[in-house]
């Protein structure tokens, strides 16, 4: 190492991609270290069993993934897969309903004027408020799925509608002058043009949907799941398990949002509609 001193190597060059990445990584690591230390201090200071230390949470986490808990008799993987399955069902259901409906509502002003009052009444209701009703009326199996559905449905619908309204009218005119029928305008112009907005709806909806699934499982769940796991563990005072569950929820939520962000960006770029 003749030419370069350590200082030189440390010199931050913001035009270098690797430097930028390293900087971000170091800052993120420092932030996490401070967070864990704060948590540790708070846990010791409050000395409340409901706030276990990071060490306890970590060992609970590793134990749950390796051996599972005695109450449900299954590992954390099973709880995660149960919740994820519900989440995916709710998501697919929301997409299947919200996207076509959003396209129609964006397309037809009369239909929009007709449905908006009802939708505007329903929209502000927190999805979890439906949980008791859905869970009872749909026999505990579809209940949590429907809660996720409601959570994802509205952002998806409004984004799709917005997407249709934002469509360049010249695109539609262009398609018409090439002989496109109403149906063809719908399928070949409006639908693809709305896709980036649908994806944005998906991105927003997925964050909300994840909160909904956990909340509805906390309320009651016929078939377990990570939210249910947290609720029964709290009932029995396994607070380290509760925290482990919360950590899993946090990581899964982060993953879903990261994945949907990435998918959104990818599709928007792929479609050249940045």
């Amino acid at each position: 190492m003749s030419g370069k001193t350590i200082i030189e190597m440390l010199n931050y060059d913001k035009n270098d991609k690797r430097h930028r990445f390293a900087r971000r990584a170091i800052i993120a690591a420092a932030s996490l270290v401070v967070f864990v230390l704060l948590w540790w201090n708070l846990s010791l200071l409050l000395a409340n069993p409901a706030i276990p230390t990071p060490q306890k949470t970590w060992s609970a986490l590793t134990y749950l993934f390796a051996h599972g808990d005695s109450v449900s008799g299954v590992t954390m993987w099973s709880h995660i897969s149960i919740s994820l399955r519900r989440f995916v069902y709710g998501l697919l259901l929301a997409m299947a309903v919200a996207v076509p409906l959003g396209l129609f509502l964006g397309y037809s002003e009369t239909l929009r004027e007709f449905t908006m009052p009802t939708l505007e009444i329903l929209r502000p209701i927190a999805p979890i408020a439906w949980a008791p009703i859905f869970i009872f009326t749909t026999g505990y199996v579809w209940g949590p799925i429907l809660v996720v559905f409601v959570g994802i449905f509205f952002p998806m619908l409004t984004n799709t509608m917005f997407g249709v309204k934002k469509i360049d009218p010249n695109w539609i005119d262009a398609a018409k002058t090439m002989g496109a029928t109403r149906v063809q305008v719908f399928t070949k112009v409006m639908f693809p043009a709305a896709v980036p907005y649908v994806m944005n709806g998906l991105r927003v909806g997925m964050g909300i949907g994840w909160m909904c699934i956990v909340a509805s499982e906390l309320y009651a769940s016929f078939g377990g799941g990570i939210g249910f796991f947290v609720s029964i563990m709290a009932q029995m005072g396994y607070w380290d398990y509760v925290f482990a569950g919360i950590a899993v929820i946090a990581v899964l939520g982060l993953l879903t949002i990261t994945v949907s962000d990435y998918v959104h960006k990818f599709i928007v770029r792929r479609m050249g509609m940045e």
Binding site: D168, N170, W171, D173, T177, A193, M271
Partner: peptide
């Protein structure tokens, strides 16, 4: 409108996707 009359637009109106 019909395909017997094609149109070219000032802002191109191409389909970006």
């Amino acid at each position: 409108p019909g395909p017997d009359r094609g149109m070219v637009f000032q802002d191109f109106a191409l389909f970006p996707w």
